[in-house]
Every structure is written in C-alpha cells, then in structure tokens.
C-alpha cells in the first residue's frame, strides 16, 4: 500500500492549526462573555453601591 504523504501532511497540519484555532477562539469568547457578564452584574451592584452612600448622606442630613 502506497502512503499518501501529502495527505498525511495535510491532516497533520490542519489538525494542529485547527485545534489551536478553535481553542483560541473559545478563549476569546469566554473572556468576552466574562467581561460582559461582569459588566452587567457590576451595573446591578454598582447602582447599589452608589445608592448606599446617598442614603447615608440623607440620614446624616436628617
């Protein structure tokens, strides 16, 4: 049986590059989603933090 070396190289190369590409893309997407979710969650929390001092200030005034 004759080994088709160009096919071997193709599988070898496309495999390594392919796996790295997919995993790298996944990394970017995960980081991106983490940023977005952090932002959304912090917005909720951020408001709470901002409103808390206001209440304190209001209490002091009273």
């Amino acid at each position: 049986m004759e080994t088709d070396w160009s096919k071997v190289l193709e599988v070898f190369g496309s495999g390594i590059i392919g796996v790295f590409m997919v995993m790298f893309l996944l990394q970017i997407l995960t980081q991106l989603s983490t940023r977005v979710i952090d932002f959304v969650e912090n917005m909720g929390k951020g408001n709470a933090v901002v409103s808390a001092p206001k209440e304190a200030v209001a209490k002091e005034k009273a």
């Binding site: 599988v11 495999g15 390594i16 796996v19 790295f20 996944l26 990394q27 995960t30 980081q31 983490t34």
Partner: peptide, 16 residues
C-alpha cells in the same frame, strides 16, 4: 482562567 484552553490545545499536538 480561559488561557487554560490553550494548554488543552497544546497537549493535543502530541496526538498529531
């Protein structure tokens, strides 16, 4: 720590 995804890819190089 999403960078770890690259390590998961790195080990697959051995497979090829």
């Amino acid at each position: 720590n999403p960078k770890m995804l690259l390590l998961g890819a790195g080990a697959q190089a051995g497979l090829y």
